[in-house]
Each structure stands twice: as C-alpha cells, then as structure tokens.
C-alpha cells in the first residue's frame, strides 16, 4: 500500500462503499433488476445495510487476529450501514408505496416486521450522529456505552431480515448464522464488563 492510500483511505473507501447503490440504480434503470425492479432494489439496499453492519461488528473480534489497525474502519462501515438503511427506507416509502402514507402509517402501528426494521434504524441514528471526534470528547465514557446500541440494532435488523422471507432459505440462514457467530464472539467481552461493573459496586 502506498503512503497516500494508508493515510487517505477514507477518500477511497467511502466512494467505494457507495458503488453498490450506484450500480443498483444503474441496473434498475436499464432493465437489469428483472420483472419487479423496485422489490429487488429495496431488498438489495436492505441487504447491503445488514452486510455493512455485520462487517462493522466483525472488526473488533478480527482485530485480535491481525497486526494492523482494523478498528478505524468501524466508523466507515457503521456509517455505510446507516446510509444504506436510510436508502432502504426511502426506496420502500417512495418507490414501493409511492408515498401512500396511509399504508405506511398502518405499517408502523400494526406490523412487527416493519416496526422492527424502523427500530433498528432508530437505534443507528444516534450512533451516526455521534460518529465524530467532537461527540466522542463531549460524551466521554458515555460515548462507548451509547455505541453498544449497535448490538441491539443488529439483533433487530436480523429479525427484520429473517421475516422478509416467506420461509427459511440459504441466504437468511447464512446471514443469521454470521450474526449469531459475531454475537457469540462478543460474549466474553460483554461478560467481563458485566463482572467488572458488579465487582466495582460498593
């Protein structure tokens, strides 16, 4: 890797992360998404959001195995996950429902499938807003605690993802398996922090 790339990776990786969205729009306008382009488009955006979320969660466990700094990519992958989740919601409301607000209102009141997805996005929102140095300094130790919400978001998104299929299939089994693995990998860390806190009490 050249020195420039090592120092300026953000300028390369952010646009790279946006490529799937550009590619999906291009395909969608050129007949590449098949008979039901809106459905493929909105599902693909959701899947990309989930993928970036899983990569984000995988960085800390993987860090123990490699020598270079992986943790600095957590902001990038987390922000990309949030960005794709927002696009996913926008595609649903604008392209699928064509702004039929009555349907969306009923979704939010009655349908656990949609409510779970919205809750996952709602949990990601404060994380995206505080993913900057200024917030880290302002929130101090609270920042770390706040950003543990990412696990809640991942679990909610995982259930939402599972419910988006009529039956269990290879895709959902694969991604849910990965999520399970990542949660298990974080288990020891969570457990030790719980013990520390319990022990720290007077």
């Amino acid at each position: 890797m050249s020195g420039f790339v090592r120092r300026q990776w953000a300028f390369i990786l952010y646009p790279l992360g946006l490529l799937p969205a550009v590619w999906l729009v291009w395909q969608g306008q050129n007949g590449g998404l098949g008979a039901d382009p809106v459905n493929v488009f909105e599902r693909s955006l959701g899947l990309w959001a989930f993928r970036f979320l899983l990569i984000c969660l995988a960085l800390a466990p993987l860090q123990r195995m490699v020598r270079f700094n992986l943790l600095r990519f957590r902001r990038l992958t987390g922000l990309l996950a949030f960005f794709y989740a927002v696009l996913h919601l926008a595609a649903y409301v604008a392209l699928d429902l064509q702004f039929d607000i009555r349907i969306f209102g009923r979704d939010l009141m009655h349908r656990p499938f949609i409510i779970l997805g919205m809750a996952a996005l709602a949990l990601l929102l404060p994380l995206a807003l505080t993913s900057n140095r200024w917030s880290m300094m302002r929130l101090k130790r609270g920042w770390k605690r706040l950003h543990r919400l990412v696990y809640g978001a991942a679990v909610l998104a995982g259930i939402h993802f599972f419910l988006s299929f009529k039956t269990l299939n290879r895709t959902s089994a694969l991604y849910l398996g990965l999520l399970g693995l990542l949660l298990v990998a974080r288990g020891p860390l969570v457990w030790s922090s719980v013990r520390r806190r319990v022990a720290g009490r007077p």
Binding site: V25, G28, Q29, N30, G31, L33, A35, D36, P37, V38, N39, F41, L95, D96
Partner: peptide, 11 residues
C-alpha cells in the same frame, strides 16, 4: 406493484 415496467423509477 404492477409488473411490466422496464425501469426502476417507472414502476
């Protein structure tokens, strides 16, 4: 959704 549009934004 009506199947038959050839484009994403034309659905």
């Amino acid at each position: 959704r009506v199947i038959g549009s050839k484009t994403l934004f034309g659905t």
